[in-house]
Computed example of a mutant assay.
Amino acid sequence: MSTAPSQPRFEPARIIIVMGVSSSGKSTVGAALGRALHAPFLDGDRYHPEANVEKMRNGIALTDEDRWPWLEALTAALKEAAQKKGVAVGACSALKKAYRDFITEKAGEAVLFVYLDGSRDVIAERMARRNHEYMPTSLLDSQFATLEKPDPTTENVLNVPVTDSPEKIVRTVTGALDHLKTFKRWQ
């Protein structure tokens, strides 16, 4: 009999959001997870109002007031996609617990957050290698300052290390989605 603690079980959800700081791999993992589940994938970056994009492009961190309309628009789109297809996958930083609570409240149902957990050094290295349309490396510190790591004992979250390959992360997530296996979407 094993005495190792097991990962807490999460509440089954039709809406799955891959979350984490910029350059953690949200879009890459989210798109791969959507393909594996044969589910629509919605990238949260596409739901930012132009004013948010301009602020970030100019190296100005977003405030809570900037984020609420963005989170509401993304959540509405994810809810609609899940209603049509039975499941939907999104990518969204969801850095604060209040944001995750807001998303869940607006969805009106359980949302599973897949947290891509990585150190500042690993993320900084990734960020330096990529060219993002509007997220400069100067905003990395503000991302980590805003981040409230989700707690799997109190939140509906599955924590995975960003150092795993996207394929391994997708296998970890799909392996944990017992409630969706009846659809045999990825088998």
Rank of each mutant, 00 (worst) to 15 (best):
E105L: 09
N131M: 13
A98H: 00
D151Q: 10
L140T: 01
F144P: 11
R126K: 11
T63M: 10
L158T: 02
E148Q: 15
N58P: 10
G90K: 03
C92K: 03
T146K: 12
V157D: 02
R57M: 11
E50S: 09
P136M: 06
Q143T: 03
S142P: 11
T153W: 10
R120L: 14
K96A: 09
V89F: 02
T153G: 10
D101H: 04
G118H: 02
L116R: 08
V53M: 14
V170Y: 01
A98N: 04
P166K: 04
G86K: 04
K96E: 10
L62D: 06
M135P: 06
D43P: 03
K106P: 02
P161Y: 03
L139A: 02
K97A: 12
E105D: 07
A145D: 14
V87K: 00
W68E: 09
L158W: 03
L95S: 08
D117F: 07
H132V: 11
L112D: 04
D121Y: 02
V160H: 07
G44D: 00
G44S: 01
A77H: 12
R100N: 06
Y99P: 07
P152E: 07
L95R: 09
T75E: 14
Q143G: 03
N131T: 12
A94W: 05
T154A: 14
K96C: 07
T63L: 14
L147C: 00
Y47T: 00
R129D: 13
E65P: 13
E125F: 08
D121P: 08
R120V: 10
P166C: 07
G90V: 00
A88H: 00
E54F: 13
L42Y: 00
A51P: 10
A82F: 05
D164S: 13
E167M: 06
E109W: 01
K79F: 01
F144S: 08
E65R: 13
V122T: 13
L62K: 03
H48E: 02
L71A: 11
H48C: 08
A94E: 04
E65T: 12
D45H: 06
T154G: 12
L112E: 01
D164N: 14
L116G: 05
G44K: 00
K79Q: 09
A128D: 08
T153E: 14
E155W: 09
D66L: 10
